[in-house]
Amino acid sequence: MNKGFKWILWGILIVVLIVYPRLFGIYYTNILVEFGIFALYAISVNLLLGYTGLLTFGHAIFFGVGGYSTALALTHIQGLPLLASLLIGFLSAVLFALILCPMVVRLSGTAFAMLHLAFGLLMYVVTLKLRGITGGEDGIGGFPIPPFSIPGIVSIDMTDPLMFYYFAMIVLVICISFLWFFTKTPFGQIMVGIRDNADRIDYVGFKVSHSKALIYIFAGGFAGVAGSIFALFQNLVSADEFSVLNSFAPIMIIMVGGIASFFGPIFGAGIFALIAELTSRYTERVELVMGLILILVIMYAPMGFLGLVNMARARFFNKEGAS
C-alpha cells in the first residue's frame, strides 16, 4: 500500500467520523462513543497482553480510578475545566500504576494475573464500602460537566451529545494514535522482546523490571483516560467499573478482534458493540450469544477477526498475510 493511498484512507475515516452523527442520529452516535472508549481501554490492555505478554485480571482498577477521580474532581472542585478533569483521571491512574509497580513488575504469568485479580476485587469492595467518598452502590452521578472552553475564544457545551461526541472522538483518536506510535518506537521493540524472551532482554543490556514498569504505567494511564471519558459520557461512575467483568471485557475484546495486531482491539470493540446492538433487537439473551461467540472464536479463530482476515488474504492472494 503506498503512502498516498494511506492518507486518502485516513481522510475518508475522518470525514466519516465527522458526518456520522448527521447520518445515523444521536442513538448510534452514543454507541460509537462507547465503542471508542472500549477500543482505547482494550488497546491499553493489549500493550500488556499482546505486546509484553502479561495477562492481567485487574486492569479495571485503572479504568475505575480514572473514572472516579474525574467524577470526584468535578463534584468537589468548582469550575474545574474539562481538560483538567481528564488530566486528573489520567494522572490518578498513572499514580496508581506507580504505587503498584514495585509489587507487580517482578511477576509474570499466573502470579501477575492473580495478584491483579486480588487488587481489582479489593478496589471493588473498598469502593462499595467507602460510601462517604464513593457513594457505595449508587456511585457518583450528576456531577457538572464543564464546557470545553478556551477563554476568550470559544466555549462549547459538553452536555450536548453531538458536541461531546466530537470531543470524545478527538481525544480518543489522539490517545490511540499516541499508543500506536508508542509501539513503533525503540521502546516498543523492547516490549515485544520481553514478551518473546524476557531473560534475554537482560543480556542485551535492557533492564526488564524498569521497562515493564514504564509499559505498566502507560497501560494504566490510558485505561484511566478511557475511564475518565466514560465517566463524563455517562455522567455517572459506579463500582461496576472495578468489577471482574470489566477487567475481563478488554481481554475478550482483544481475543475477538485479534491479539497479534495493534488494531485488533479496535475491531474487537466494534464487533462487540455490533453484536450487543444486533442481538438485543431480537433477543434479551445478549449474554448467551456473547458466550457462544467467545467459545466459537477461541476454538476456531484464536487469532481473532484480524487473524481470519489475514488467513483469507493469504488464501485469495496466495501470499503471506501481513499483520
Binding site: 525503540p186 515485544v192 534475554r200
Partner: peptide, 26 residues
Amino acid sequence: STFSRLTAFQNIRMAVLSKRGIRFNI
C-alpha cells in the same frame, strides 16, 4: 535464546539499540 517471533533483523537491532544506549526512547 533469541526473540522467537521477531525477525532476524529485529533480533540484531535489539542489540544495536542497546549498544547505542537507546533504551527508553519513545
